[in-house]
């Protein structure tokens, strides 16, 4: 059992466990803290996949900003354990559970059946590619952050339209959020 394998199973257990905790805790504060744990685990998974820069961004954006926002809102509302945390209808709840089960079976089945197709070919070549990637990593260690540079070049040349479109979207979101937050009809309006 190599360290890489151990790391994968450890992180996978951490992610799935804390993900389940998000779903099962009836107190939203615990849910939010478990979600933050999941985010950190996902960032660690990114590091095992050699995406160092993305892992750092995941930590800063998700774990550092978005989740703190969630936790702050929950604490400001002072939401303790909920009276009605889960869906109430017995039949509709059963339907939803069945839907979730069907989807999970479909996805996992699809992945396992797909061994021979595109995914299968990829994972068959994976061993050779990992060896190749390792030799590339050795080269990269000399040239420091070539991977991050490659990422930046791709972002600002090939995907420049998406980048600019996101800029427009973020502006719209900022304006919309301020408008929503300042709307009348709240507890302050008399």
């Amino acid at each position: 059992m190599t360290p890489d394998v151990f790391l994968f199973w450890f992180l996978a257990l951490l992610i799935v466990g804390s993900g389940l905790a998000v779903l099962l805790f009836t107190n939203p504060v615990y849910s939010a803290l478990s979600l933050a744990m999941t985010m950190v685990g996902v960032a660690a998974i990114f590091i095992t996949l050699n995406a160092y820069f993305i892992a750092g961004v995941q930590l800063i954006v998700y774990a550092g900003a978005v989740m703190v926002l969630f936790v702050m809102v929950i604490m400001l509302f002072d939401i303790k354990s909920e009276v009605q945390a889960f869906t109430s209808g017995k039949i509709s709840g059963a339907m939803k559970l069945i839907a979730v089960g069907l989807l999970s079976g479909l996805i996992v089945g699809g992945i396992i059946m797909g061994q021979k197709s595109f995914v299968g070919e990829l994972s068959k070549d994976a061993a050779a590619q990992v060896a190749e990637a390792n030799s590339a990593k050795m080269k990269r260690a000399a040239g420091a952050d070539a991977a991050t540079k490659e990422l930046g070049v791709a972002l600002f040349t090939k995907h420049i339209f998406g980048f600019e479109a996101l800029g427009v979207l973020l502006t719209a979101i900022a304006v919309g959020t301020v408008a929503l937050a300042r709307s009348r009809g709240g507890t302050h309006a008399k």
């Binding site: 994968f8 996978a12 799935v16 993900g19 999941t38 945390a85 889960f86 994972s123 061993a127």
Partner: peptide, 30 residues
């Protein structure tokens, strides 16, 4: 042997957990 499949299965398990949360929980923030 950790292959692409392992990461895909992990991803799908997490996705299904998230979907169950969206369908089953009643709190907007959750």
């Amino acid at each position: 042997d950790i292959s692409l499949n392992h990461y895909l299965i992990l991803s799908s398990v997490l996705f299904v957990i998230g979907m169950a949360g969206v369908l089953l929980r009643r709190n907007v923030i959750v």
